[in-house]
Design a binder for these strands. Structure first.
Lengths: 229, 229
DNA sequence: GCATATTTGTCCGTATGTATA
DNA sequence: CTATACATACGGACAAATATG
């Protein structure tokens, strides 16, 4: 009899990320996560237990579990006895996130194996194709994926996860750049250049290019940051 | 009637110096986290909602919130409809954790500012003093703190937090080394050597020493790992 | 500064679904 | 296959903290 449940779960987990049964809390968290990273829920917005529970059709207890999950993703902050709010990144947060990216992406460039650059190259090409069609939203997505796959070269699930969560955090401020096109567009050529260097085995040069990219992107984001240091 | 629950909560909370008001979920999570990293709750152990809620004097709702927090620390795994269990690290996990440490600690060695080595030096000296007193538990603590403060040189809260959680995860397998002395002891001299190199501004050499340390520690841990790759 | 309304924190009881002996 | 134990999820209750007028 279906004592195969465990086997099925493990097999499914190893192969495809598709999961048959997720808890309500996870489902609700996924919905809210999407609204936060897509900018539907803006930084500082309050997430009322009563209103949201009503809107999503879940009880307050379930919603609170979802809040804990989102808080761990750093997408919301839980203020005791006050409630849950969409996170507002400070300039300090932005600097920290870019420090973290420098560490992760430098390591990726240093350990990059030229034969594993497939997904990285694909992201570059998706970005260029999107730019040709003036689909700036897709350009932004491809830019993020380029760097995500770059870190993926480390072949570390924990680093992948960290990078993924960090990029979600950064999206909280990307929304402040009302012209996403102007922000992500100029970086396409730099991504292409980094890819080329990696394919030629020029890890050192690629790392230097990457650090320049990150320095410039950080500086640009900080000019739009209203918060003090 | 026993509505004295709140009084008991305050009494317990007042013992902790740091923060006056933490949620019950956070307090419970902290208690359980301690039991897991101290090896009181061993990997694979089941955390029953009913039993633990009874023992800790909190409702199942509150306990479930605490579980979400612990699951995010990767110290427990939440299997849907089955319950919460203390995490069992596989050999794959150990390798991943050391990959992560290599990235973080290499970055730390590379960016180390010799004038900020105070806490690192202090940890080395605490370890040596503890070894002189044959306090192997303190030796282990100092060893972990040496590496924690090393990463602290990056001055990144997010990296600090990541390192801290990763070390907590590693403690899940340190308990398998029944002789903690034999495990942490030999690394004291290597820590001292790394410190010396950093103080002399020999970042490259320090990084190489560090990588050797991590390779050896990883290999030693893997010999005690019962799980397949 | 105070009284009041709102919201969160926490608990309880219970019905339903799932897994395992 | 059935029985049992347990997790999931809901809704209601009330005290405490916070926001509001």
């Amino acid at each position: 009899m279906p004592r195969t449940r465990n086997e099925a779960q493990r097999a499914g987990a190893s192969a495809a990320p598709a999961r048959v049964s997720r808890s309500s809390a996870e489902r609700v968290a996924a919905i809210l996560r999407g609204k936060v990273v897509d900018g539907v829920l803006l930084p500082g917005a309050r997430l009322s237990e009563e209103r949201l529970g009503e809107a999503l059709g879940v009880s307050r207890n379930t919603l609170r579990e979802a809040f804990r999950l989102l808080a761990h993703d750093q997408l919301v902050v839980h203020e005791h006895n006050r409630g849950v709010f969409v996170r507002t990144l400070t300039a300090h947060d932005i600097r920290d996130l870019y420090s973290l990216r420098r560490v992760l992406e430098a390591a990726a460039a240093r350990h990059a194996d030229p034969v594993r650059l497939g997904p990285v190259r694909a992201a570059v090409e998706r970005g260029e194709a999107a730019a040709a069609h003036r689909d700036w939203s897709a350009v932004a997505t491809a830019d993020l994926q380029f760097h995500q796959h770059l870190v993926g070269l480390c072949a570390s699930p924990r680093l992948d996860d960290l990078m993924h969560r960090s990029m979600a955090e950064l999206r909280l401020v990307f929304h402040r750049m009302h012209a996403a096109a102007a922000f992500h567009g100029p970086y396409l050529q730099r991504n292409r250049q980094i890819l080329t260097l990696l394919e030629q085995g020029e890890g050192e040069a690629a790392e230097k290019e990457l650090m320049g990219y990150l320095d410039d992107a950080e500086a640009e984001l900080l000019t739009s940051a209203p918060s003090p240091p």
